[in-house]
Design a binder for these strands. Structure first.
Lengths: 346, 346
DNA sequence: TTGAAAGCGCTAACAA
DNA sequence: TTGTTAGCGCTTTCAA
């Protein structure tokens, strides 16, 4: 009878298992109880060296890989962190996500990616998908504006980190910087460069809007002409930057400085300026936003606003992990600031 | 005694629950059994309208969000797909990941992101983290070379999709294209443009290596001088492209065409050419690889090799889902091909 | 330091 | 169409 357990009595109903090695089997092979095997694997310094050795050997022999779904269910700690990112192929968030992912992984956490949406119903769908996985933390690029989702998030008790912005009322933790300050700083920077006639090329984006408004205000404060604002909508490609610049040169030929809401847009502006053989920076100054990795090496090298995206990702991961492991973070709101990197376009 | 169940006899040990609404509570509120509630939520057309209505109401009232960890454990279907991507901030894979993610989400799956590593031990770690989550499918950017991991992957029974390359021995499914054919095609394309003295700027990457070798072979076939190959190592930035071009112009001034292993490298080559006031394309032709979104709109617009990354992501998602749901895919290996997009640099 | 029992929240299998 | 029962594979609680 090398059969399985008791084929006797009422035919036991049986589930089709996955066939993967379980902790049970490892424990059996090692001649210990499952819980001991669990401890040997998860908290090796809580078991005797002898037990540790037996279990380690059994794990190696079987090629056991713990089922984190089961572990997560039992411990209500999923070791998963979810991130919600806007869907743009090349963006200023890439660096952040990458450093977030790396830091999390090094601490034994995995990253689940959700793409943020424009419609509210879809946003709710994404959030439910995330909450359904019971992640140990949620990383948001941007602030969560929907009051309904904010309270839902709060109710779950899952640590939430909002980023890339500042607000007086974060859901939970916040690592960001002030878009208003950026707008003001860039305006003053250009005014100091003796620029007088401004244009702003911006995408449809609430944060860009705040930078724009602050810029305008700073310009008005100096009694200079009100900047010409061009909203390119959702598309933030080089193409739309070029088109915007063509439009600016047509309707406002006196413009001598352009502030763009993204580096890609700025690259487009530069491209059109070059196409029309305008002297940058003498005739026109251009400032971008983001400092994506290669704008420093182009000719002319782009003056832009730099955000330390890597820091946001790394610090964010650390914050989320701290909270996931039951600790508190001393400073739940952090302003990482920004810097204007002056290069050849100003 | 509005207490919980029987405080009698031996003090029942109790676990601290998470506090989240469970299916149980929803069922209770709706006055049905948990399994009926489950069916109403997951397979609504298998229950009566009356039951469906009761459960829907209860879900709405409680704000119930199903625990996918528990569901995954019980059904051994996690609704998770894992992707392994190389860690490069701006890359040709962005588009693929984005369309993969979107397509998966629309079918109720989530994407887990793993960053592929250079060391073998780390690669094993990443894979164990992935397998531990019991995903319903694994998306690999590239081929898996480690024989050990290949067989481990195969043993799990999880559907695996390799991409961005072609091979006679895929682990499971494969959606890619031939790097050898690309090298040959680009060489012939440039030869046809009356180019004679070639240089190749390439990153340290096995696929780039195959493109390079095919390129060289095609050139040799025409009895033209052997191309000068410059390996820039791991860094594929604009900066290294510029440096490489400077080196080429110094050591091989007769070069009249450069093939780069990435668009960013090509942009660097162009930048240096412009810096040295060389006429592109008259004096020198430049071809990139990847067709990242903005190289079309630069001046000069880059001639490059285009891969349909969106298609790889979308088709890949569909394949993985098919297999996750127990169906088979008719054509487990797909060559999506490539095209040389001729623009102003040739 | 180790183990037995119980149960995390859900669904598969079976029965009515 | 609905319900009962028994787990999925792990960790917590309690006890030795």
């Amino acid at each position: 009878m090398a059969e399985s357990a008791k084929p006797s009595g009422a035919a036991k109903r049986t589930r089709r298992k996955t066939g993967a090695i379980t902790l049970h089997q490892v424990a059996q092979l090692a001649g210990v109880s499952p819980i001991s095997a669990s401890r040997a694997i998860n908290t090796p310094d809580q078991v005797s060296p002898k037990l540790l050795e037996k279990v380690t050997l059994a794990v190696k022999k079987t090629g056991y890989v713990p089922n984190l779904l089961a572990g997560g269910l039992a411990s209500s700690r999923s070791k998963l962190i979810a991130a919600v990112v806007p869907s743009t192929v090349i963006s200023v968030f890439n660096e952040t996500i990458e450093s977030l992912n790396t830091t999390l992984f090094n601490s034994g956490y995995q990253l689940m990616l959700g793409q943020s949406a424009y419609s509210a119903s879809r946003e709710q769908l994404i959030l439910d998908a995330i909450i359904g996985r019971r992640p140990d933390g949620i990383f948001l690029t941007g602030l969560m504006k929907s009051e309904k989702i904010r309270s839902q998030l709060l109710a779950t008790g899952i640590p939430v980190l909002e980023t890339w912005d500042l607000t007086a009322n974060p859901i939970d933790m916040l690592i960001g910087f002030s878009h208003t300050k950026i707008g003001t700083a860039v305006a003053n920077f250009l005014i100091q460069k003796e620029r007088r006639n401004f244009a702003i090329v911006r995408a449809e984006d609430e944060r860009a809007d705040r930078r724009t408004r602050a810029f305008i205000q700073a310009v008005k404060k100096q009694k200079l002409p009100t900047p010409f604002v061009l909203n390119v909508g959702a598309s933030r490609s080089i193409r739309s930057g070029r088109d915007a610049m063509a439009e600016i040169l047509r309707s406002h030929p006196k413009v001598d400085a352009v502030f763009c809401s993204s580096d890609l847009l700025a690259l487009g502006v530069l491209t059109e300026a070059k196409f029309q053989k305008l002297d940058v920076p003498r005739k026109i100054n251009v400032v971008g936003f983001g400092d994506i990795p290669f704008v420093a090496d182009m000719i002319p090298a782009l003056t832009t606003v730099r955000i330390n995206g890597m820091k946001i990702g790394e610090l964010g991961a650390r914050y989320l992990i701290e909270r996931a492991e039951g600790r508190t973070v001393a400073e739940p709101t952090v302003d990482v600031g920004f810097s204007i990197i002056e290069r050849e376009t100003t």
